[in-house]
């Protein structure tokens, strides 16, 4: 069974990697966007696994965008290296802020991360000479001169990297700490887990991912502006995709982002006017009829068929 699973995973990764060879530029472009949201969604979910609801996704995404674009613009840094800088910059900011805000819980943490993203936006908008103000800055050319295949592979690597980090979190010692914090902080504390250290670690890592994704996005189009870099799209859509797919897992955000991302594009072409209404209705329907997300639903179906077939599997 395990071998088969590994094979399937490898096959999917290979299919994803080779996507540019059999798909045209348009599906490629759509998938690039989907992968962007997938990586953001995964990073948000990783933080959520500690019990901390973050609304700062768009904020760190934007920081990464600005850091990457401005280092290329002013220092002539290689675009690929600048994306890395975007991640490092977001991580440093997260590390500094983490000390102040990771003591907060629940909606207080959520609202503070959201407010911080607001602060970043205002700063980016008002430092006219440095950031280009509300109009933003452009680069002479997009990364790889806009070659869609290379751009896709770049985003694919970022998303794959997020998946790997997410799986590491799920499979190593960190997982026990994280789950313990989420389920019962007091017990976790008394069992000797340094909660703050773990929270800070996860916060910095996930923010770094968001920064890298932002950097890649900014380089993909060769421009950055407060409106586009800190857009609430990069906050709400990844969350919606995770919740629709199923939270507290790697597979959930992956499934959710692919399904919702492709669906929104399909609906748009099918119904030029009012497609967002249908999209909204589908989201509501997912919540009502699949309370554990699409992944939860699939698991349930799998379980049912398994028990119907014979029930000799011992997995739960």
């Amino acid at each position: 069974m395990k071998k088969l699973g590994m094979l399937i995973i490898l096959a999917v990764v290979a299919l994803g990697f080779l996507f540019p060879l059999y798909a045209g530029p348009y599906p490629l472009h759509v998938m690039t966007t989907v992968l962007t949201y997938m990586a953001l969604g995964l990073s948000w979910d990783m933080m959520l696994r500690t019990g901390q609801l973050s609304f700062g996704t768009a904020g760190f995404f934007g920081l990464g965008s600005y850091a990457a674009l401005l280092t290329t613009l002013y220092l002539g840094l290689n675009p690929l290296a600048s994306i890395f800088v975007g991640g490092v910059f977001a991580a440093i900011v997260a590390f500094a802020l983490g000390y102040a805000i990771l003591r907060l819980r629940e909606i207080y943490f959520a609202i503070t991360t959201l407010a911080l993203a607001g602060v970043f936006t205002v700063v980016a908008r008002n430092l006219h000479d440095f950031t280009g103000g509300p109009e933003g800055k452009i680069l002479p050319s997009a990364i790889f001169n806009g070659d869609p295949t290379k751009v896709y592979w770049l985003t694919f690597s970022v998303a794959l990297g997020s998946i790997l980090v997410s799986e590491l979190f799920q499979r190593t010692r960190i997982r026990f700490a994280i789950t313990a914090i989420r389920n019962d902080e007091i017990t976790a504390k008394s069992s000797g887990i340094d909660i703050f250290k773990y929270l800070l670690f996860v916060f910095v890592i996930t923010s770094a991912i968001q920064g890298v994704v932002g950097g890649a996005y900014a380089q993909q189009y060769g421009f950055v502006s407060p409106e586009s870099a800190f857009s609430t799209n990069f906050l709400l859509l990844p969350i919606a995709m995770c919740l629709a797919g199923g939270i507290y897992s790697t597979l959930g955000p992956v499934i959710g982002s692919v399904i919702l991302g492709v669906l929104s594009e399909y609906l748009k072409l099918r119904f030029p006017y009012g497609h967002l209404i249908i999209y909204g209705v589908i989201i509501v329907a997912i919540v009502l009829f699949m309370p554990h997300g699409i992944l939860g639903m699939l698991k349930k179906i799998a379980q049912k068929t398994r028990t119907e077939v014979g029930g000799n599997e011992n997995e739960k």
């Binding site: 045209g24 530029p25 348009y26 490629l28 472009h29 759509v30 690039t32 966007t33 962007t36 869609p148 996005y217 189009y221 586009s228 799209n233 594009e265 748009k268 072409l269 030029p272 497609h275 967002l276």
Partner: peptide, 18 residues
């Protein structure tokens, strides 16, 4: 094609039309 006032959607729309 609708661009939904969204940069990446607007860019993908060009690919689709082309």
């Amino acid at each position: 094609v609708d661009d939904e006032m969204n940069p990446s959607k607007g860019a993908a729309a060009i690919d689709k039309l082309a």
